[in-house]
Design a protein around this nucleic acid. Structure first.
Length: 424
RNA sequence: GGAGAGGUGGCAGAGUGGUCGAAUGCGCUCGACUUGAAAUCGAGUGUGGCGAAAGUCACCGAGGGUUCGAAUCCCUCCCUCUCCGCCA
């Protein structure tokens, strides 16, 4: 959530920065804010008088002046004040709710360093890695074909169990996934992240805090009877690990990694990536998440990116790093680097990790603050998240990049001990 | 699912209609004493809104009600804990 107080002070600047992302009108928010504050002044004056009357009556009663005519006068005034309040209070509440509802739909402001652009075509490539590991032969089957040939992926039968866009991993496929999860978690915990295994269902407040709700409700699976949603990413769960808490500055940064499945409805993506592991309703991911002091968040963003890259490097998978432009930024992010892995069958780089700094955006929505010893008041933490990595897409990349001319797939060296074999 | 108990400040725990944002203890901060520390003593110590400030308002799980006045009484909901049942 953007900072209402700052918006009030620099509306033009906010409007301009948001304009880099798309079309957003902040005027209704400013108007409601104005109204709300006017009502608040009047209301609190009335409440002050009401409190005063209460005290006066109390004093008189204690002094034994129960039947004092003054008491009767105060009671009448008290009733009048109450009548006025009962008109104002619902008005103010209504306006506050409208205001919050509007604020929740405004995305984060792009950072000062985010490249300006209108859509993904204007994202900026900042690095390529691993050209020497690009496959040299040209007869590479798409991962779903090789996977089905090897009997380790099954899409057809998954439709029986669930529907399309699900996969069942079989034999070495299932083992490969398990090996990847362990490998990633081992690496990330060694890099200083605390492993957590959170609930895979989260409530509305959690999805709202991370920015998933209210705008993207149609993207998540919902358990309607329970105010619970299947998490679309572990980010939702870990963000709420410290929701409504006041941390102490000394315990920052908090760095977490978590393996979870992720559930997405992929509404509106009909016809895109219909085959394979790229776009499923359920996929596994090892997520990195940090709660940090604002002073360190840029630096922590860089190291988060490196920690995600380290997995691709260890697996010797060619990738590139791009920085998203203002028009392609996710709702909660102020700055985002995507890692894209090479998929030879498509001759394309495909997103395998997205590393974002959300600054105070999620912390404000989730009321996650910290206190510095000796300093007055509290500040919002900065939150950062990134995949380290998406497991399904990593499997796809391995099945393609490690495919050999004889139709087998070599197991990346770093995984051989985890899997207990060298070839699939 | 059945029965019961309970939700108060960082924690523990009082408060059952009146000046209570809330006793007391612990913790924490500062100061005194001490060669240093412990112990002891003194002072301070929640969050948020509005306001330049003084200040003022709100918050005792959430929402509503009674009252001049609610942490305290009434209603609804949520959550936690204990026991029983069921179950991985």
């Amino acid at each position: 959530m953007i900072d209402l107080k700052q918006l009030r002070e620099n509306p033009q600047q906010f409007q301009a920065q948001l304009g880099l992302r798309g079309k957003y009108d902040l005027q209704p928010i400013l108007d409601l804010d104005q109204q709300q504050r006017q009502l608040e002044v009047t209301r609190s004056q009335l409440q002050a008088r009401s409190n005063e009357i209460g005290k006066l009556v109390g004093q008189k009663m204690k002094a034994g002046g129960k039947d004092d005519p003054e008491v009767q006068t105060w009671r009448e005034e008290g009733n009048q004040v109450k009548a006025q309040l009962s008109e104002l209070e619902p008005q103010e509440k209504e306006i506050k709710e409208q205001l919050r509802a509007l604020l929740l739909t405004i995305p984060n402001l792009p950072s000062e360093t985010t490249p300006v652009g209108k859509d993904e075509a204007e994202n900026v490539e900042i690095k390529r890695w691993g050209d020497e590991y690009l496959p040299t032969h040209t007869e590479i089957l798409p991962h779903w074909e090789i996977g089905e040939k090897l009997g380790i992926l099954n899409f057809e039968r998954s439709v029986k169990i669930a529907q399309s866009r699900f996969v069942t991993l079989i034999g070495a496929g299932a083992a490969l996934e398990r090996a990847l999860i362990r490998f990633m978690l081992d690496r990330q915990t060694a890099a200083g992240y605390t492993e957590v295994s959170p609930p895979f269902l989260a409530n509305t407040a959690s999805l709202t805090a991370s920015g998933q709700l209210p705008k993207f409700a149609e993207e998540s699976f919902r358990c309607k009877d329970d105010d619970l949603w299947l998490i679309p990413t572990a980010e939702v769960a870990i963000n709420s690990l410290h929701r409504e808490e006041i941390l102490s500055a000394e315990e920052l940064p908090l760095r977490y990694c978590a393996y979870t499945p992720c559930f997405r409805r992929e509404a509106g993506s009909y016809g895109r990536d219909t085959r394979g592991l790229i776009r499923l309703h359920q996929f596994d991911k090892v997520e990195l998440f940090k709660f940090v002091h604002p002073d360190t968040s840029e630096q922590e963003h860089q190291t988060l990116l490196q920690d995600a890259e380290a997995i691709l490097q260890a697996l010797q998978l060619p990738y590139r790093v791009i920085e998203l432009c203002t028009g392609d930024l996710g709702f909660s992010a102020t700055k985002t680097y995507d890692l894209e892995v090479w998929l030879p069958s498509a001759e394309k780089y495909r997103e395998i990790s997205s590393c974002s700094n959300c600054r105070e955006f999620q912390a404000r929505r989730g009321d996650i603050r910290f206190k510095e010893a000796g300093k007055k008041g509290t500040q919002f933490v900065h939150t950062l998240n990134g995949s380290g990595l998406a497991v399904g897409r990593t499997m796809a990349a391995i099945l393609e990049n490690y495919q050999q001319p004889d139709g087998t797939v070599k197991v990346p060296e770093a995984l051989q001990d985890y899997l207990g074999r060298e070839v699939l």
